[in-house]
Design a protein around this nucleic acid. Sequence first.
DNA 1: CGATTTCTGGAGCATCAGCTCCAAATCGCT
DNA 2: AGCGATTTGGAGCTGATGCTCCAGAAATCG
Lengths: 216, 216
Amino acid sequence: MSTEEATADARRLTRKGAATRDRIVTAAAELMFERGVAGTSLEDVQKAAEVSPSQIYHYFGDKRALVRAVIAFSTDAVLEAQEPLLGRLDSLEALRAWRDLMVVRQRGRDRAGGCPIGSLGSELAGTDPVARGEVAAGFARWETSIRDGLRAMYDRGELRRDTDPDQLALATLVALQGGLLLTRIRRDTVALEAGLDTVLDRIAALCVSGPDHNGG
Amino acid sequence: MSTEEATADARRLTRKGAATRDRIVTAAAELMFERGVAGTSLEDVQKAAEVSPSQIYHYFGDKRALVRAVIAFSTDAVLEAQEPLLGRLDSLEALRAWRDLMVVRQRGRDRAGGCPIGSLGSELAGTDPVARGEVAAGFARWETSIRDGLRAMYDRGELRRDTDPDQLALATLVALQGGLLLTRIRRDTVALEAGLDTVLDRIAALCVSGPDHNGG
DNA sequence: CGATTTCTGGAGCATCAGCTCCAAATCGCT
DNA sequence: AGCGATTTGGAGCTGATGCTCCAGAAATCG
């Protein structure tokens, strides 16, 4: 459940064909993130990807199928964009650096803040059960990456024994998603910073070394 | 910027007229929360509210105007549904009770979890600037309520002096929203609980009385 | 009770988005 | 080069949806 395969629609793909397919998915992902799935017509995608109307139906049978491809693409893109930090969140420094990365990335785009996966999931959860499941799977991958780092810290004895690293990992993802949602709505990163910093301060306070205090 | 007024479209409202208007807004709010704004046709609203096609255009000139009314209605409804707890979040017990309320409320509805305001905001932020602003205003009210409680604790000396109650308040809202988003997508309240508990544990750790430890 | 305003119902219009079909152009392979 | 498979372009169909118009019913007020 990651990059390709989809529904076996990619049986024989010419190099040119694959490029066209990618162009469609990339354009669709960008538009659907900015305007939402329902707010993005296939004609919009056509123009942005510079393809003719029938291409989309050649590579994806359906708008729904295109949306699923967009989910898969966006999930991979979002997670990969956090590497190599996301794969090694096993220290306070790494967590802080990752936090900074997420905040700076959001500041980059004045318009259209937020998280592609979260936005897609929020819109589709009520109408498309399949899409909801795939978004949930994407979040599960995200959660796992964070959890692995915190578990490593715990196993190394850097976190207090009465700590639940799994809960902290999930809380970190929650703070990130809530922060990104509010970033999209408020058009600033204040909430994102407050959310992540608070969770990270909590983790810092649970570290065995130097538990004195660490003001925000 | 709260209950009524809108765009001065409510000049002369018969009792019956007001009832019809309410019926439309209520039905629209429920449908738009479940299926999204774009996924809710005005015909759907008509049927749910048991009105004829032209009613909607009699009370609201536009679908966009209806959406704005739904935002105002949902904001008030969500905030009022948290009273009287939300107005007095000035103790750890009150915060925990409020947390429990939010979690239980989410468990109530198997389908369609999440937050109406957050969902509307996420969908509309990219396309309707006016709607985005109104959702942001709703979140500001929410944030203010939480902040007042934490500031009271701080002023009473129950929080350490090196604490930033405003940041904690915003972080609490962030955890709530992120948790509700993940509740909608995962169809369980685990993430919501993890997020809120982590922030609340952080607040508890910053309380002056009994700072020993408080395991999750 | 009568006049003015408000409310209601339904027919119907224009647009647009999702989707289909088919033939021409292009590509990959031997 | 030649042949089958893939890719491309574009015209066009169909249903849904936002929205309009208008006349009749109901309510408010002097």
